[in-house]
Amino acid sequence: MNNVDDDEKFNRKWWLNPMDSKQLSDGDRRNAKLINLWIVIVALLYAGVVKIVKLFEGGVDEWPIWFWLFMFLPIVATVFLIHALYRFCRDTKDELLKRVIYESLSIGFAVAFFIHICSFVAKVAVGPFELHGILTFWGLVLGYFIGFVLLCRKNCYV
């Protein structure tokens, strides 16, 4: 007989994969994982571009052709990320998972905004602050993922 009150939590190591794949349909799981995957790819590509751009101190005039192509990769990845978000909003059936993703994005943007304001104040008070953009961007990404893991944990997607 089925257990009527099967509210048990699972013993799986939640930090390895915050979503319990068995509890979601294949489509919902794929949609959520695609968003996370593209966010990681976009973050790494932007980080890579920022790192490499410092190699060419002479500015835009010294950029080789291959670097121009490399510069567009984060933009292409961002288009895929937006597409993944659109598909998630359109196709995902599990309403709680939708709320988890929306709230995680909200947390990410809130953290990014906070860091943006703090670094802007630091820039005004102390002077030029090169890490302003990078910190804001990584605040967004880390805020999203920390929020995602915590909310998955809270909603028992573990």
């Binding site: 089925n2 257990n3 509890q23 599990d94 309403e95 709680l96």
Partner: peptide, 25 residues
């Protein structure tokens, strides 16, 4: 209502096309 029908959360979730966590929440 679920208990009256002897359904687990997982069974109801399957009928609705959502996850068990959604039913639980």
């Amino acid at each position: 209502l679920r208990a009256e029908r002897r359904w687990s959360q997982a069974i109801l979730a399957e009928k609705l096309g959502v996850s068990r966590q959604t039913v639980n929440a």
